[in-house]
Deep mutational scan, measured.
Amino acid sequence: MATADDFKLIRDIHSTGGRRQVFGSREQKPFEDLVDLGWLKRSSVDSRATHYQITERGTSAAL
């Protein structure tokens, strides 16, 4: 179930172009929650960072 923080984060991601790069596993937790909701997808993972991209469902949630 989505929380107020989830909606705040997806709106922030949407307003800044729909993509986010995250460093460190602790910082990934809120983004992984949005992946579980179907609002974000992991577009790539490298040794230092994970890249996320907003989905259509995420765009709808952000509006």
Rank of each mutant, 00 (worst) to 15 (best):
K41T: 15
R26N: 14
D12V: 08
L9D: 01
L63C: 10
D33V: 15
T3I: 04
T3R: 08
D33R: 15
I54A: 02
F31T: 02
T50M: 08
V22F: 04
T50A: 11
T3L: 05
G18P: 02
V22T: 04
L9E: 02
T55E: 02
H14F: 13
D46V: 06
D36W: 09
A49P: 06
A4C: 15
H51L: 15
E32R: 07
E56S: 10
I10H: 00
D33M: 13
A2M: 05
D36V: 14
D5G: 09
F7L: 10
I13T: 01
A61L: 03
F23M: 14
L63E: 08
Q21F: 11
R57T: 14
L37E: 02
M1V: 13
L34V: 02
L9M: 05
M1E: 12
T16I: 06
T50E: 04
R19P: 03
K41M: 14
R20F: 08
E27R: 09
E56H: 08
R19K: 12
G17E: 06
P30N: 06
R48W: 12
A4W: 11
E56K: 09
T59V: 14
K29L: 07
G38F: 03
S44Y: 15
R11D: 03
T3W: 04
H51Q: 11
K29I: 08
G18V: 02
I10T: 01
A2K: 04
L63G: 05
D5T: 06
S15N: 13
P30M: 07
L37I: 06
I10L: 06
S60E: 15
R26C: 15
Q28E: 06
G24E: 09
H51W: 15
A61C: 07
R11F: 10
R26V: 15
A49R: 07
G58Y: 00
Q53S: 09
Q21V: 15
Y52D: 01
R57K: 15
L9Y: 03
A4V: 11
L9H: 03
G17Q: 06
V35W: 03
L34Q: 01
R57Q: 14
P30D: 05
S44A: 13
L63D: 05
R19C: 15
I54V: 04
K8A: 12
V45M: 10
F23L: 14
S47M: 10
I10C: 02
T50D: 04
T55R: 00
R48N: 14
R19F: 14
K8D: 09
T59I: 15
S44P: 07
V35Y: 03
P30F: 06
S43T: 15
I10N: 01
R26S: 15
A62N: 02
S47K: 10
D46P: 05
M1P: 11
G24D: 12
G24I: 07
S15Y: 10
D6K: 07
S15W: 09
W39D: 01
G17K: 05
F7R: 05
A49F: 11
D33Q: 14
R57C: 14
F31L: 06
G17F: 04
S60N: 12
K41N: 09
S47D: 14
A62H: 02
H51T: 15
D36Q: 12
S60T: 12
A62F: 03
R57P: 06
D5S: 09
S15D: 13
S25Y: 09
Q28M: 09
I54D: 01
W39Q: 01
T16A: 11
T59R: 12
D6Y: 07
V35K: 02
I10M: 03
L9I: 04
S15H: 11
F23C: 15
G24P: 07
D6Q: 13
I13M: 04
A62C: 06
F31S: 01
T16Q: 10
R26I: 15
R57I: 13
G17V: 03
S47A: 12
T16M: 08
T59P: 01
H14R: 06
Q53R: 07
V22L: 04
E27K: 10
D6V: 05
I13L: 05
I10G: 00
P30W: 05
K41Y: 13
K29R: 11
D46E: 09
L40P: 01
H14Q: 09
G38R: 04
L40T: 02
I54W: 00
T16L: 07
L34S: 01
T55Q: 02
L63T: 09
K41Q: 11
T59W: 06
A2I: 07
L40R: 00
K41G: 06
L40E: 01
E32V: 06
S15Q: 13
M1Q: 13
L34N: 01
H14K: 05
F7T: 04
V45D: 08
R42V: 15
R26E: 15
S43H: 10
R57F: 09
V45P: 06
Q21Y: 13
G38K: 05
L63I: 11
R20V: 15
V35A: 04
R57M: 14
F31I: 03
K8V: 10
R20D: 03
D33E: 08
W39T: 00
L40K: 00
V22A: 07
Q53W: 08
G18R: 02
Q21G: 07
D36R: 13
S43L: 15
T3V: 05
K8I: 12
S60P: 02
M1L: 12
D5K: 10
Q53V: 14
S15F: 12
R42I: 15
S15G: 09
R48K: 13
T50L: 06
R48M: 14
P30H: 07
L37Q: 03
